[in-house]
Design a protein around this nucleic acid. Structure first.
Length: 491
RNA sequence: GGCGGCGUAGCCAAGUGGUCUAAGGCGACGGUUUGCAAAACCGUUAUUCGUCGGUUCGAAUCCGACCGCCGCCUCCA
């Protein structure tokens, strides 16, 4: 059985079949860049990163598009809402584009840390204003949109499929509307395609309807179409974007093109902190930068970026992830265990005896690979895929203890690299013995102390030996006495 | 109020009709190893899956009620 994905549109798992043999076009809603990325971004982008990686592992040539929203959208859908980027710009006394640029760089930095592959294209909304205006014009021409006072709205009742993704119907929504309907709209559920800009609005562009800026659903439709075509294989995003954002994307795109916009819709679930939804407006979010340095009242220590990644992969992308320091700590310990095993294999390969690949081990590796693929094929069950990796860790450590051939160790390393590295992204290709220029000097100094301690131990002066070990421990360095000698590592 | 989801060991979490007396990780405990540790390995840690009923030869898995929690319906990954 091939890859099965849960399609939010059909509400069931479907066999994945790309429109074009061997090629996949995938679009994922990117961040609005007015603040540093947080744990929620990590869950979303790590989840889709693993999908991209797995598609490539399966041999699909995959084009991955993830937009950058650098045109501020309104803080609410009522007309008096504020532009988020503009608000941040005013606060920091900078140009809105400077804010967008700054947080775009910050975002890429964090995603790199999480070992997410860069999208093939990271299109900016501000760079596609012309295309957006074109789409609005087309929608007006086709009778799906209307202009009022310099703003253009999508006429929702004209698009009969509206609600098919989120399972809503227009009548109920009209009846249950909570916000004051804008007097300009024909219908309260209509949404803005183009907004008239007030004179003091910095981010504005000329258009056939006067100076203004695009509505917040428009960019994704336009950029997905431009780079991937009128119908795309996969569109991903956070669950909270299913409505209204994705529903509106469908309406705009399908009204304009007359063909299905997306074959497979994928939605990842949310991150909660202590059982509470984490959101930018709730002020309870933990940024990735805070997690990486451990500076947050809910964090007891700094955590490796890949530990955060592993925490995300420990549960399913469609399940909510309730964040806690304890959960991160556990993921971190587990990640260290995997890392240590990989390092140990690679180290022993250098000194292992030549010889045939152990047939029994080869068989087990085949089984692991099959179990891994079976799990990933089942709507990306990364939790089970991870468990296979832990089985591989146990096998590895046993073999390292008993000793085996270089070919066998290479086969193990290869599997770690493919499954843990290429697909899950939690195993690195290279582990520097000690990172950074200073560490070489540290290594020498620690080496001197290790020698002194060895002499003390030889002389059975364990008090002196332990004193050295304790001082190093306080400096954050752990010593491990192995058969081949004493090793040190940062704690 | 409308719509959707969830409740599995101390914690995280997979499993969604029989192979489940329920993966995997963390933690804890015991053992091997060690001068002592660390790391690693071996073993133990849910006869039970929110509660109560029902369907079935058979349920953690299906149905109903109840309790608790969460999300969407307004920007948000």
């Amino acid at each position: 059985m091939g890859l099965q994905l849960y399609n939010s549109l059909s509400r069931r798992k479907e066999e994945f079949k790309p429109l074009q043999e061997g090629r996949v076009g995938m679009y994922v809603c990117g961040p609005t860049v007015y603040g540093h990325a947080h744990l929620g971004h990590a869950k979303s982008y790590v989840s889709f990163d693993v999908l991209v990686r797995y598609l490539r592992y399966l041999g699909y040539t995959t084009t991955y598009i993830q937009n950058i929203t650098d045109v501020g959208h309104l803080t609410d859908d009522a007309d008096e809402g504020e532009d988020k980027i503009a608000r941040e710009a005013a606060k920091e006394r900078k140009h809105p584009m400077a804010i967008a640029e700054y947080y775009t760089r910050s975002f890429f930095e964090d995603m790199d840390q999480l070992n997410c592959v860069r999208p093939d294209i990271s299109p900016r909304a501000s760079g596609h204003i012309i295309e957006q205006i074109e789409l609005v014009r087309e929608l007006i021409e086709k009778g799906y949109a209307y202009e009022v006072n310099g703003s253009v709205y999508f006429d929702v009742v004209k698009f009969k499929d509206y609600g098919k993704l989120s399972g809503r119907n227009i009548e109920e929504m009209v009846a249950g509307a909570r916000i004051e309907p804008s007097p300009d709209k024909k219908n309260p559920v209509d949404f803005a395609l183009w907004k008239k800009a007030e004179p003091n609005h910095i981010m504005q562009w000329p258009s056939p309807w006067g100076a203004g800026y695009p509505g917040w659903h428009l960019e994704c439709s336009v950029m997905a179409m431009k780079y991937l075509g009128k119908t795309i294989d996969i569109h991903g995003g956070g669950l909270e974007n299913q409505f209204p954002h994705h529903e509106c994307e469908i309406a705009q795109s399908e009204a304009a093109n007359g063909v299905p916009f997306v074959v497979t819709w994928l939605h990842n679930n949310m991150v909660t902190v202590d059982g509470q939804k984490m959101g930018k407006s709730l002020n309870n979010f933990i940024t990735l930068k805070q997690a990486f340095v451990g500076e947050h009242e809910r964090l007891k220590q700094a955590y490796e970026p890949l530990a955060v990644r592993q925490l995300v992969l420990n549960s399913h992308y469609r399940s909510p992830l309730d964040f806690s320091d304890a959960a991160l700590f556990a993921a971190n310990s587990g990640h260290q265990k995997i890392t240590e095993a990989v390092k140990a294999v690679r180290k022993q390969i250098k000194t292992a005896a030549a010889g045939e690949l152990d047939a029994d081990v080869a068989r087990q590796l085949e089984t692991f690979k099959a179990r891994f693929e079976e799990a990933m094929n089942d709507d990306l069950n990364t939790s089970v895929a991870l468990s296979v990796l832990f089985d591989l860790v146990r096998l590895t450590n046993r073999l390292i203890e008993s000793g085996t051939t270089r070919a066998t160790l290479s086969a193990i390393d290869d599997l770690f690299t493919k499954l843990g590295g290429d697909v899950l992204g939690i195993v690195k290709n290279d582990y520097a013995e000690a990172a950074g220029g200073n560490d070489e000097a540290v290594g020498k100094l620690v080496g001197v102390l290790i020698d002194q301690r060895a002499s003390a131990r030889k002389a059975k002066d364990f008090a002196a030996a332990d004193a050295i070990r304790n001082s190093l421990d306080e400096a954050g360095i752990a010593l491990e006495d192995k058969p081949e000698g004493t090793q040190w590592r940062w704690k």
